[in-house]
Amino acid sequence: MKKSNYSKSVVISVSIHALFIMLLLWGADFSFDHKQSVGNTIQATMVDPAMLNQQAQQIRQQRQAAKDAEQARQDRLEQQTAVLEKQRKAEAERIRQLKEDKLTAEKATREAEKQRQLQQQQVAEAKAKADAQAKVEAKAKADAKAKAEAQAKVDAQVKADAKAKADAQAKVAAQAKVDAQAKAAAQAKVDAQAKAAAKAKVDAQAKAAAKAKADAQAKVDAQVKAAAKAKADAKAKADAKAKADAQAKQDAALNDMFSGLEAENVQRGGAKGKHIADEVTRYGTIYKQMIQQNLLVDQSLKGQQCKLTLRLSANGLVLNVSQLAGNDTLCRAAKSAVLQVSEFPMPDNPDVVKQLRVINLTVSP
């Protein structure tokens, strides 16, 4: 198609050039004078060079214009050809894509049909397999039912035989139970009579023993009451004496740092009271040393006093420390020392422990 357009362009160009040549020749003077020439006289027609040059220039310009026009036309033709070629390729690509899409769709349709047929075949095979399995299960179920019915008949017969045997054994057992109950009732009657006679004898003996015990208890109670009164009087006297001794001891030891450590209500009557007092004093000394190890006071507190009351548990734990009187700074230091000990040793003797449960402490640096 491009070669045909080029041939047309060449033909048009040649035609235009021929036309220009004809016009040039038509403008020239080709007239001849047919007068009879005389001798050697030569007649010539004058041609203007400027006009000829102008005409040649015009021809060249026209040829250039024609060439430019032809080139422009060829360029337009090439552009149109390129556009048409692009459109042709696009149309060809569209047709190819349509064909490809059609082939893909047909392939997908064939594949779907193939899958549908395969599924139908699988469904048919599964149904056939299920039907066969159902037949097998139905046969097995029928066989199991027949077997169960046969077994039920056997079980019923066995159960009936067992029931008959159990009924016979129950009758024998019932008769034996009746006989045993009758025998037990007779024995119980004999035992009840013997028990009644023995109880009557025991009641008589218990009554006599109770009377003798009551008389003896009355005598003992009188003796205990008299002894308790005497012990109470002795304890009251011993308490009064112990309290007086403790007060005297505290007053005599005011210049010691822990001179006021003492136990309340110390019993001092007899050997037991002396032992308790000695133990209280011994443990009081131990307590002084333990507190003194933790007591930190400034020299500015020299001459000051603090009176505290310590309350201890039965195992020596500090339950409470309270200030009775004295310098507050010194009392805080003394309290801190007591709380740092936190637990004091206690003796095994409960009477001594009782005296150590409440302690008056006088601190005087």
Rank of each mutant, 00 (worst) to 15 (best):
K2Q: 05
Y6I: 07
S7R: 11
S7F: 12
S7A: 15
S9A: 06
I16E: 02
A18C: 06
D33I: 12
N40S: 15
T41Y: 15
P49K: 11
P49G: 15
Q54T: 14
Q55L: 06
I59K: 04
Q62V: 08
A65D: 13
K67I: 10
D68V: 08
E70L: 08
Q74A: 12
D75K: 13
Q79Y: 12
Q80P: 00
T81F: 11
L84H: 02
E85I: 13
Q87V: 05
E93S: 05
R94A: 07
K102C: 03
L103M: 10
Q117G: 09
L118C: 14
V123F: 13
D131S: 01
A134C: 08
K139E: 14
A142F: 12
A148L: 14
A148S: 13
Q151H: 09
A156Q: 02
Q157Y: 08
K159I: 03
K159V: 06
D161F: 08
D161C: 02
A166P: 01
D167M: 01
D167R: 07
A182P: 00
A188N: 09
D191F: 08
A192R: 04
A192K: 04
K195Y: 01
A196C: 02
A196P: 00
A197Q: 09
A198L: 14
K199H: 05
A200H: 11
K213S: 06
K225F: 04
A232N: 15
A234K: 04
D245F: 00
Q250Y: 06
D251E: 10
N255I: 11
N255H: 11
D256P: 00
L261Y: 12
A263M: 05
Q267L: 10
G270P: 05
A277D: 14
E279F: 03
V280I: 10
T281W: 01
T285A: 14
I286D: 09
M290T: 01
I291L: 09
I291E: 01
N294C: 03
L296E: 10
G303A: 09
G303I: 10
K307R: 08
T309I: 09
L312D: 10
S313F: 02
D328G: 08
T329Y: 03
C331V: 01
A337N: 12
L339S: 07
V341L: 05
F344N: 00
P347F: 12
N349C: 01
P350R: 05
P350K: 08
V352N: 00
L356H: 00
I359K: 03
S364Q: 09
